[in-house]
């Protein structure tokens, strides 16, 4: 294919002129849109700040070293909270997401016309709202703290887990389910014997995957007051304790890498 392009350029050009034109038009349009967008952003930017940024960054960098290692003793508790937010939030989301996925999958839903659209709407709503926005809402409702964070992570994860799970349910081998049904099994028994074993690996994988994402997300929830290490980070930044900030950044990187490693291990063990 590529060889043909090089050796017979003329044929290729004439052959593709229409597409070529469309591609150029798309490029032109894209560039115009981009330039326009950038213009609008630039109108609201104080460019003096931007030109000053490298110097600022260097200054900030210098203030950040060395990290305030001794401060780590104050961080164990926030790290523990962060871990709990992610884990408990994931557990809550699973408990809610499983029935929703069951209702959303075309082959298990009790009613395609009524229940399925509702389930799909819940999934979309949960997915389109970032956990930070959920946290923002919950902090005003239930007050600041870990609890708001757990619920925020839970609500955000429902859509993710339910979406992947219902897609897995729709992909199962229907003949195995039918075989179980043909023995005279009830609907509940057919689910447990025919469907659950088939989606179990996918389910475990999804859960671990989401837990990993939730660890990352729970590190920042504190910025809006929802507990965890983000709370400390926010405080340190507003009080300009840059050496503490750099320590916390290192801790966050460490936690994220660790959780990535754990989830990779667990997923490997499952599959």
């Amino acid at each position: 294919m590529s060889g043909a392009i090089v050796t017979s350029k003329k044929v290729w050009q004439r052959h593709d002129r229409k597409t070529q034109l469309a591609v150029w038009a798309a490029w032109l349009f894209g560039t115009a849109v981009f330039v326009y967008c950038f213009q609008l952003i630039s109108e609201r930017t104080i460019w003096a700040f931007v030109w000053d940024a490298p110097a600022q960054a260097a200054d900030l960098g210098a203030r950040m070293v060395p990290p305030a290692w001794s401060y780590i003793h104050y961080l164990w508790r926030p790290i523990w909270d962060t871990l709990n937010i992610a884990t408990l939030g994931t557990i809550i989301s699973i408990v809610i997401a499983v029935p929703i996925a069951y209702c959303a999958a075309r082959n298990t839903t009790p009613s395609v016309a009524f229940v399925r659209p509702v389930a799909l709407f819940i999934i979309v709503a949960s997915r389109s709202i970032n956990s930070l926005i959920w946290a923002l809402m919950l902090v005003t409702i239930v007050g600041p703290g870990v609890f708001a964070g757990i619920i925020a992570i839970g609500l955000r994860s429902i859509g993710f887990v339910a979406k992947l799970l219902y897609e897995a349910i729709e992909e199962i081998d229907e003949s195995q389910v039918e075989a179980v049904r043909s023995t005279g099994a009830s609907a509940a028994q057919t689910t447990v014997y025919g469907i659950v074993p088939q989606v179990m690996p996918a389910f475990a994988g999804i859960t671990v995957f989401r837990w990993d994402i939730n660890i990352r997300e729970s590190t920042v929830l504190g910025l809006v007051g929802a507990g965890g290490i983000g709370l400390e980070l926010n405080a340190a930044i507003t009080q300009l304790y840059w050496t503490q900030v750099s320590l916390m950044l290192l801790v966050i990187i460490g936690t994220v890498i660790l959780s990535e490693w754990v989830s990779a291990k667990v997923r490997h063990a499952i599959i």
């Binding site: 003949s175 075989a179 179980v180 049904r181 043909s182 014997y193 179990m200």
Partner: peptide, 16 residues
């Protein structure tokens, strides 16, 4: 249904 046993072409065992 429990009075009728069924055997399938692709076995249709629950593989897991």
């Amino acid at each position: 249904r429990r009075r009728m046993g069924m055997i399938f072409q692709e076995y249709a065992l629950v593989e897991r």
